[in-house]
Simulated scan of single mutants.
Amino acid sequence: MLFINTRPTDRAAGLTRALLEAGYEVAELPLLELVAEPFSEGLQQLYRQLVQVQVIVVVSPTAVELGMQYLQQAGIKPEQLHHIRWIAVGQSTAQVLARFNIQSDVPQVENSEGMLDLPLLKQQKNLNKIAFWRGLGGRQFMMQQLQQQGVEVLNFVLYRRQCPQQSSAVFAELLTKADLHQPVAVLISSEASWNYWQQLCTQMQQSRPWLFLVLGARLAQLLETAAAQTGKVFNIIQLENLSASEIIQGMRDWQGHV
């Protein structure tokens, strides 16, 4: 069975290796690449306010690296942030934070809903100011939910996401090799990656049935709605996180029922 690993190039290797060891054929097709936004006066002003926040939400390993790089450029010392609690969207982000000697809270479900369910956000009545280290367009739902609760949000846009230029050519090559009669599994880890996947399928006029492994209930619902609107049949596996073990177990459970 072919598995299309759509993780960004710098994060794909571990999952690809685990899938190959589990006996799956794997093709890497990154749907997102992250491009740093330049350090600006707007970011400088946000960093000046950072010591006032109670929580910093970090949404990716790239956000950690850029956030810390720009922290230094802004003239803020890490010890000035010792009073702040940190939330990492997943274990990979938490591991990068740990390299900077920062401990973070990590949700069981590695998405916005999972983070909102953390006791740090759900039960803290005195939370009034929170910072997001994120990419352009990301985590809108989570920020809106917090703002509706009266929390002030400092919005650090550290990078933008785009579909790699070479992905169209890679996708076209994959289609020539993929057996029309064999299921093809595709990892969809965010709404942005889903949007780019649909663009690729439209460009290549692809309507074959796919097996989608998606992160979290909201993304699964998004795909179910798209299937209903287009009349297509999607096979969907809902993931709680993006670990190789979770993905492989989801694949095996699905194969055991078909």
Rank of each mutant, 00 (worst) to 15 (best):
C201T: 02
Q206A: 00
L127H: 03
V157W: 04
L200T: 00
L43P: 05
F132W: 07
A22D: 06
V258G: 11
L158I: 09
Q165W: 06
A22Y: 14
K125M: 09
F141A: 14
V35K: 14
I188L: 15
L242I: 10
G23I: 09
A220N: 11
L242V: 13
W194I: 00
P38T: 03
Q148M: 05
A172M: 09
L175Q: 13
D117W: 09
F156Q: 06
T230M: 06
V258T: 14
E246M: 01
I56E: 00
E191T: 13
T93R: 05
A172P: 11
P38R: 13
G150W: 07
Q249N: 06
I236P: 08
A228R: 14
V109N: 04
G256F: 05
S243T: 15
L81R: 02
M204F: 12
L223W: 04
S40N: 10
G42T: 14
P209E: 09
P8R: 04
Q182R: 05
I76G: 04
E41I: 01
W197Y: 10
F171A: 12
L31I: 00
A228G: 08
P38S: 13
N101A: 04
D10V: 04
L215P: 10
S190G: 01
T230R: 02
G90D: 11
Q54M: 09
G67N: 04
V109I: 04
V55E: 01
R208T: 01
Q229T: 08
G114D: 11
P30V: 02
L180V: 14
L222N: 10
L127C: 02
L222V: 10
F100A: 11
G14I: 12
P8N: 07
M204Y: 07
L219T: 06
D10Q: 15
P30K: 02
G256H: 08
Q147T: 13
P107H: 03
G137I: 07
E33F: 06
H82R: 06
L32W: 03
G114N: 12
Q149C: 07
I76V: 11
Y159P: 03
L175I: 04
S193H: 02
V64G: 06
I248E: 10
M204S: 12
R218A: 13
I237T: 12
V57T: 07
S104Y: 00
R252S: 10
L146W: 01
A244P: 15
G14V: 13
A88W: 05
Q91A: 06
A98T: 06
T62V: 08
E191Y: 08
E41M: 02
V109M: 02
E240V: 15
L121H: 07
Q69Y: 15
A98N: 08
F212P: 08
Q162E: 05
V59L: 13
L187G: 01
F212R: 04
G67T: 02
T62N: 10
W86L: 09
L223K: 05
I84D: 00
